[in-house]
Measured scan of single mutants.
Amino acid sequence: SPEEIKAKALDLLNKKLHRANKFGQDQADIDSLQRQINRVEKFGVDLNSKLAEELGLV
Rank of each mutant, 00 (worst) to 15 (best):
S1E: 08
S1R: 10
P2T: 11
E4M: 10
I5Q: 07
I5E: 03
I5R: 06
I5Y: 07
K6L: 08
A7Q: 13
K8N: 06
K8Q: 10
A9D: 01
A9R: 00
L10I: 10
D11E: 14
D11Q: 08
D11K: 05
D11F: 04
L12H: 11
L13T: 00
L13W: 00
L13E: 00
K15M: 08
K15N: 10
K15F: 02
K16Q: 11
L17V: 04
L17K: 03
L17E: 01
H18Y: 08
R19I: 14
A20P: 02
N21E: 14
N21R: 15
N21Q: 15
K22F: 12
K22M: 14
K22H: 13
K22C: 15
F23Y: 13
F23D: 14
G24E: 07
Q25N: 12
Q25G: 14
D26C: 13
D26Y: 05
Q27N: 08
A28L: 09
D29C: 15
D29R: 14
I30T: 04
I30P: 01
I30V: 09
D31S: 06
D31Q: 09
D31E: 13
S32E: 15
S32F: 13
Q34S: 06
R35M: 11
R35W: 04
Q36I: 12
Q36G: 02
Q36H: 06
Q36N: 05
I37K: 04
I37P: 00
I37E: 00
I37G: 00
N38T: 13
N38G: 10
K42E: 14
K42G: 05
K42N: 11
F43C: 14
F43Y: 13
G44T: 00
V45I: 10
V45P: 03
L47E: 07
L47S: 06
L47P: 12
N48Q: 09
N48T: 11
N48P: 05
S49C: 04
S49E: 05
S49M: 03
K50C: 11
L51T: 03
E54Y: 07
E54P: 00
E54Q: 07
L55E: 02
L55K: 00
G56S: 05
G56Y: 04
L57I: 12
L57C: 06
